[in-house]
């Protein structure tokens, strides 16, 4: 089976096609979700929810050439909704949720965890593009296709995201150093 056959099966409400697509993209979906949410169990929930939503919406689609860029928009919205709900919850209860533990998400030493913590402090759009470029090693063309933005916007968003990261990371490093 290939992707276009799988998409055609899904549009005929045949779950075998969707099973094929899930197997193809579930790992990638998990990495993208964990990049947004910084928490593996929440990322797993977001993936499950997004795949279920995608399965329900596929038969109604007029045309679909590539599955993942379309699915990514569902996953992205799901993750952003979760982030918004988390903030609302913190505002209502006046209690900050326990911080995500970078050790559970990132491999490596303390410095890598500090880098991840700095990333987590950025706004989601900046974190998203930095993770796509540096962790997934996506090209500008791939990022442009996935986020549905022009190449120029990819370049300028990356520039601003890197500046924001630099600001947060250097500040954290400076504060962490002994006087």
């Amino acid at each position: 089976m290939n992707e276009s056959t799988a998409i055609a099966l899904c549009r005929d409400r045949d779950p075998r096609g969707f099973e094929f697509l899930v197997k193809q993209y579930r790992r990638e979906a998990y990495y993208h979700a964990v990049g947004f949410l910084g928490n593996s169990s929440e990322a797993e929930d977001a993936c499950q929810e997004s795949f279920a939503r995608a399965y329900a919406s596929m038969p109604g689609l007029k045309s679909l050439v590539a599955f993942y860029p379309w699915f990514y928009q569902i996953l992205r919205n799901g993750c952003l909704n979760r982030i918004r709900a988390r903030r609302r919850h913190e505002a209502v209860t006046d209690v900050e949720d326990a911080k995500n533990d970078p050790q559970l998400v990132v491999e490596g030493d303390d410095n890598k965890r500090d880098v991840w913590s700095a990333l987590e402090q950025l706004k989601p759009e900046f974190r998203e593009i930095l993770i796509l470029k540096h962790i997934h090693e996506s090209s500008y063309a791939d990022i442009s296709k996935l986020l549905d933005i022009p190449r120029g916007t990819v370049m300028s968003r990356l520039y601003h995201a890197r500046r924001a990261f630099q600001h947060v990371y250097v500040k954290a490093k400076y504060q962490g150093e002994p006087q």
Partner: peptide
């Protein structure tokens, strides 16, 4: 500066699920 600080990001890898 961009080159130096953002090179930190290249070494990151997410744990396998």
């Amino acid at each position: 500066e961009l080159q130096k600080e953002t090179s930190q990001l290249d070494s990151l890898s997410i744990r396998e699920p």
